[in-house]
């Protein structure tokens, strides 16, 4: 079974068909997805800027990281759930789209980023506050997070610009304006 067949199978489930074909369901899911990106993506950016000492400098790193953590987690779960529903409901259309795969790779790298930096940076913000100079690992975590979280919405937007080469495309239509 090819990956494309898997994508077709996902789209053909009754739930994904319902998501795609029921009026307003897809737009509502997308609105939720984008609202979460705007609200919680902004919080991630501000956390990274605080780690770099470029914003919220009068707040401790522990306060910013700890204060925003539950909201970022909730936002991330909603964002990913909505994203999966959107991708699943049009899976074969997304399959040939390089921006979709780039975005998926970046999300995977977000997971790697968390695995690497959570134990050595984000779980010990008090140590960062005590340190006279911000450790290199914390700066690296913030810069990589900034790059990842700016690239993800950019790739998400570029998904809508991809028009498959008709000679190679698996599907005739493109993901328009999404």
């Amino acid at each position: 079974m090819s990956l494309y067949s898997v994508f077709e199978s996902i789209q053909s489930t009754s739930f994904m068909t319902w998501v795609e074909q029921t009026p307003w369901v897809y737009p509502i899911i997308m609105a939720t997805h984008l609202s979460c990106i705007a609200v919680f993506g902004g919080m991630i950016l501000m956390t990274d800027l605080r780690l770099l000492g470029l914003a919220l400098r009068d707040q401790s790193i522990a306060e910013v990281v700890g204060g925003l953590r539950p909201f970022k987690r909730i936002g991330f779960v909603i964002m990913v759930t909505c994203g999966l529903l959107m991708a699943g409901s049009e899976a074969p259309t997304y399959y040939p789209n390089p921006y979709f795969w780039t975005k998926m790779t970046l999300l995977l790298l977000v997971g790697v980023h968390a695995l690497v930096f959570k134990p050595i940076v984000y779980d010990h913000p008090e140590e960062l506050d005590k340190s006279p100079v911000l450790p290199t690992r914390a700066k690296a975590a913030a810069v990589l997070s900034l790059v990842l979280w700016v690239s993800i919405p950019v790739c998400g937007r570029l998904i809508g610009y991809y028009e498959p080469d008709e000679g190679k495309a698996k599907t005739p239509q493109t993901v328009t304006n999404r």
């Binding site: 990106i37 705007a38 902004g42 919220l56 925003l68 950019v154 937007r157």
Partner: peptide, 18 residues
């Protein structure tokens, strides 16, 4: 232009949400 629009909107709304 759209990418600038979206990313900087995230910055604005993120700070307002804080």
């Amino acid at each position: 232009a759209e990418c600038f629009h979206i990313v900087f909107f995230g910055v604005a709304i993120g700070t307002i949400m804080i």
